[in-house]
């Protein structure tokens, strides 16, 4: 990938806490204008990568750079609980000289959140919309969202994602969005970054990645070249094999994996090697 056009670049990035390495040897390049999914199990290093990218954390080794004005929505969407929505917008204006107040207010109005309501009285969906309005109010060029959908019901997830996508599509904003619920990201993200055990397991354009892979379902004795196997599972008399860059053999059914099937295949396969890194 051409790193020159990337909006988020990391090279040899590592972060060690007292308990061990949370992230190591991480190379990332998210192309400009993409909506990138940062996927991985709990403790994979997603939040660490986000915090390093925003400058909240300093890397133990390597480098990370956001090219363009950053915007960040932290995990748990922290907002001052005692503030009203109006006051949160005031805070956004006070803390950011490049604040677009009309835009942030429009986003809050579209979410139908009353300006006089205190943050602690809002529903999870409303709180997320306000937090998103504050993150977007800076008119960021690179938007980092750490588990923005974590505590939302399915309807609220859809609404939040809909509002987000409408805004970033219009602005051409690069988005890095982390989630451990992969189904939420299918059809939305066009770039994938799969973390496991503190390492990048898979990265690239979603369509290309899906096209390169096949999910084979065949008899137990199905013979597949080991080099092409990402992950193989056997259930009863049947084998399910995720392969990369391989013409499907005749004795197997093959189909292009969904994003979730692809990601889960890599995550299961990465588990053993992941443990070694985390230890």
């Amino acid at each position: 990938m051409d790193e020159g056009s990337a909006a988020l670049v990391a090279a040899g990035l590592g972060k060690r806490y007292r308990r061990g390495w949370a992230l190591r040897g991480c190379a990332v390049a998210v192309p400009r204008g993409r909506i990138a999914a940062l996927v991985g199990p709990n403790g994979a290093g997603k939040s660490t990568l986000m915090a390093l990218a925003t400058g909240l954390l300093r890397p133990t080794e390597g480098t990370v750079a956001v090219r363009g004005k950053p915007g960040f929505l932290a995990q748990g969407k922290p907002l001052y609980q005692g503030f009203t929505v109006e006051e949160v917008l005031h805070a956004g204006r006070a803390l950011n000289p490049d604040w677009d107040d009309a835009y942030a207010r429009r986003l809050v109005a579209e979410a139908e959140v009353p300006l006089g309501a205190r943050i602690r009285t809002l529903s999870g969906g409303q709180r997320t919309r306000v937090a998103l309005a504050v993150a977007l109010g800076r008119r960021p060029e690179v938007l980092l969202l750490d588990e923005p959908l974590a505590d939302l019901d399915p309807l609220a997830r859809q609404e939040v994602m809909g509002a987000l996508l409408a805004e970033v599509a219009e602005q051409g904003t690069t988005v890095l969005l982390s989630s451990h619920v992969i189904a939420d990201l299918d059809g939305i993200c066009d770039h994938l970054l799969l973390l496991s055990g503190g390492r990048v397991q898979l990265a690239g354009d979603v369509e290309e990645l899906l096209a390169e892979h096949r999910l084979l379902i065949g008899p137990r004795e199905l013979d597949v070249p080991a080099a092409a196997v990402v992950e193989r599972r056997e259930t009863g008399r049947q084998s399910t094999v995720l392969v990369r860059g391989l013409e499907p053999p005749d004795d197997a059914q093959a189909h292009e994996p969904t994003l979730e099937e692809l990601a889960l295949g890599y995550l299961r396969a990465g588990r053993t090697s992941g443990r070694e890194v985390a230890a």
Binding site: L56, A74, G76, P78, Y80, Q81, L95, N96, R138
Partner: peptide, 13 residues
């Protein structure tokens, strides 16, 4: 305790 330092520290200031 409320995690809001992350908000304060990731703004322009």
């Amino acid at each position: 305790e409320q995690g809001t330092h992350v908000f304060g520290l990731t703004q322009s200031i």
